[in-house]
Write a protein that binds this DNA or RNA. Structure first.
Lengths: 205, 205
DNA sequence: GTCTATAGCCAGATAGAC
DNA sequence: GTCTATCTGGCTATAGAC
């Protein structure tokens, strides 16, 4: 029993390593350019072994997405229990976290266009469950922030939600980092500003 | 002489048709998923014929990008000569125009990650020239709007520029359109609001 | 310059030994 | 479950007839 459990543990660890590599490569190259061979080589196993764990490239990408959603959920729960901040500050904290993940090269950004991938994701219950859970948490904060007058009341909550998701893989961050003109902290601060206060800046116009 | 000119005209028209098809397919599927066969089939010619006009898939994509940059420049020039609006309103007009193009399914959004494509673009003088020209025009308006206090003065102009480019292919637009809950006009108005006034809305907080 | 046909390559997925 | 070796299909790009 203990031996079986140990073996399972080793297998789980290997699977984690695979997903972590896929996660990083997805962030670096994107789904279409990343190859399964690269992932296997990065982990240090044969491609056929990888396919014992994941039946397709799409499922591998889904696992990477689930992983980052899990990390997001963990962070959200931490915020929920340890801070007494207002909803708007919690939303900003989440946006800040996603940008840090992106700067660390750990934010897999899947193309919204690839139909095979989207189809696979839409039938992946685990993925959809996590996505829904994150959306619910953020949605609650969004409506709370609107009630408090800290978020534009005229904006449908879904628009704010989609915007936050989109900013999590905003290409502006990569462009600024590539330019080498700003520190990571400055980049995050500026993008937080443009996200919540707009290009016009605080004070409206 | 007239006959030669006519033939050249026909050729030019065919080339335009190719680029227009590529443009649409790039907007719909993205560079990696789009195939040259599809473009040729869409135009109604053989793939080999297409390769007489463009020596590679990357060059074809570059031509599509140049096309949309030309359209943008034409619009910018129109704004420059026909309106007496402030720089901030001209920037908003450009952002509005890019969103209309995107809603029309005519905004080719190339992945920032594909290295082969980026390498080809970076050596394409025509593309770089157009990109620089658009950047210069917008950059002038950005600094003017900052002087007038209509754009956040603390923001480096390049950040505002990158943000405008990024919003031109913001996936939020596609998500909202796919949801079917809003009219095109509403979508554009909301995204213009979040872009310039932020999620918090006009009035800062 | 346009076509049909095909070369050449590469990536996703699998077979079968261990 | 892991490996090596291979299959399979699709895509870019080209050859060669007309």
């Amino acid at each position: 029993m203990a031996k079986v459990s140990f073996r399972e543990h080793v297998l789980q660890a290997r699977e984690d390593a695979i997903v972590a590599s896929a996660n990083r490569l997805l962030a670096e190259k994107g789904f279409d350019v990343m190859t399964v061979d690269e992932v296997a080589a990065d982990v240090g196993i044969a491609k056929a072994s990888l396919y014992k764990h994941f039946t397709s490239k799409e499922e591998l990408a889904a696992a990477a997405m689930i992983r980052v959603l899990d990390r997001a959920l963990a962070f959200i729960v931490t915020l929920d229990t340890t801070t007494r901040a207002g909803a708007i500050d919690q939303l900003k904290a989440v946006a800040c976290w996603t940008m840090q993940v992106q700067l660390a090269g750990e934010m897999p950004s899947l193309p919204a266009q690839n139909s095979a991938l989207r189809a696979a994701l839409m039938t992946n219950k685990l993925y959809l469950d996590r996505l829904m859970e994150v959306s619910d948490k953020l949605g609650a904060w969004i409506t709370a922030a609107q009630k408090a007058g800290h978020l534009n009341r005229k904006l449908p909550p879904e628009v704010a939600l989609y915007t936050l998701f989109a900013r999590a893989c905003d290409p502006v961050l990569g462009l600024l980092k590539a330019s080498g003109q700003h520190s990571d902290e400055d980049i995050i601060e500026m993008l937080l500003s443009t996200c919540f206060d707009g290009l016009s800046g605080p004070g409206g116009r």
